[in-house]
């Protein structure tokens, strides 16, 4: 098992998301693509903080834990923010999808032709 494997898998996940956004015709599948790409980036953010054998960044009174043995706590805080932003984006996209379905009666993006040219 290569040490870079998690990063590579993470990038593959991101590419799957981008593929879904670019190639799919169904609005819901495009939204799923955005969500997958988003999760890949969040996962990457957590991976950056990871340290082999590291433990959570909490000091203890009973044992001595050096800061060097802890995982980086900052990305953990950042990823929470990022997840919340992702939730807002997803909720907005789904609301749009519902309204679009109401107008067109379909989720097929190729049948929505108001804006061509």
């Amino acid at each position: 098992m290569n040490a870079y494997m998690p990063y590579i898998l993470c990038m593959i996940l991101f590419c799957i998301g981008v593929y879904a956004i670019l190639a799919k015709r169904n609005i819901i599948k495009i939204i799923l693509g955005v969500v997958i790409a988003e999760y890949a980036v969040n996962l990457f953010l957590v991976l950056v903080a990871y340290k082999a054998g590291g433990r959570s960044a909490i000091f203890s009174e009973t044992e001595v834990i050096l800061p060097g043995a802890m995982v980086d706590p900052l990305p953990h805080a950042l990823v929470l923010t990022s997840i919340v932003i992702g939730l807002a984006t997803t909720a907005f996209l789904i609301a749009l999808a519902i309204r679009l379905y109401g107008k067109y009666g379909t989720f097929d993006i190729t049948r929505m032709r108001e804006l061509r040219g």
Binding site: I21, I30, E38, L96, R99, L100, M112, E114
Partner: peptide, 26 residues
């Protein structure tokens, strides 16, 4: 129709842009 479609396009592309920015920041 027009507004919703434009907004969807904008939101998906803007969302992608934000993800790329976030990845650059990481």
């Amino acid at each position: 129709k027009r507004e919703l479609e434009a907004s969807f396009k904008y939101a998906v592309m803007g969302g992608m842009a934000s993800l790329l920015i976030l990845m650059g920041v990481i």
